[in-house]
Simulated assay, not measured.
Amino acid sequence: MKHLVPEARNGLNKFKMEVAQELGVPFTDYNGDLTSKQCGSVGGEMVKRMVEKYEREL
């Protein structure tokens, strides 16, 4: 996969880990034992927060 902004990768990984911790989802280097619901909740919350931040800055 080619990233549109490669420099953002570390920041997004950090953000993902922060959200996962807040939601109680045990993200590690291997996440094959997590359910789709757990992974989806982290991704969904990340998108929700990014959209809210964007809307506040309009």
Rank of each mutant, 00 (worst) to 15 (best):
V42A: 02
N10M: 09
K2I: 05
K2H: 05
L58W: 11
K16I: 07
G43Y: 10
Q38H: 07
L12T: 02
T28D: 09
E45G: 06
N10D: 14
M46I: 15
G40Q: 09
D29T: 08
R49E: 13
N31A: 03
D29P: 00
D33S: 12
M50S: 13
P6Y: 05
G40V: 06
G11L: 01
Y54C: 11
F27K: 01
E22N: 09
V51I: 15
Y30Q: 10
N13F: 10
C39L: 14
V51P: 10
E52W: 14
L23W: 05
L34E: 07
L58V: 11
M46N: 10
E55I: 10
K53W: 13
K14Y: 10
V47N: 11
G40S: 08
M17E: 04
P6Q: 06
A8K: 07
N10H: 08
N10S: 12
V19K: 03
H3L: 13
A20E: 01
K53Y: 14
R49V: 11
P6V: 02
P26M: 07
E22P: 06
Q21T: 05
Q38T: 08
D33V: 07
V25Q: 00
K2E: 06
P6A: 06
K16C: 09
M46Y: 13
M46W: 15
G24I: 05
K14H: 06
L23P: 00
L58M: 15
E7N: 02
V42M: 11
G44T: 15
A8F: 03
E7Q: 06
H3C: 07
T28G: 10
E22S: 11
D33Q: 09
M17G: 00
T28K: 13
V19R: 03
R49L: 10
M1G: 09
M46K: 12
T35H: 01
N10Y: 05
S36N: 11
A20C: 03
P6W: 00
V25K: 03
E52H: 09
R49M: 12
H3A: 12
R56E: 15
E52V: 13
T28P: 03
K53C: 12
Y30L: 05
M50T: 15
M17V: 06
C39R: 08
L23V: 02
E18P: 00
E18C: 00
V25R: 00
D33I: 04
K37L: 12
N13L: 10
M17F: 09
G32V: 00
T35D: 06
N13M: 14
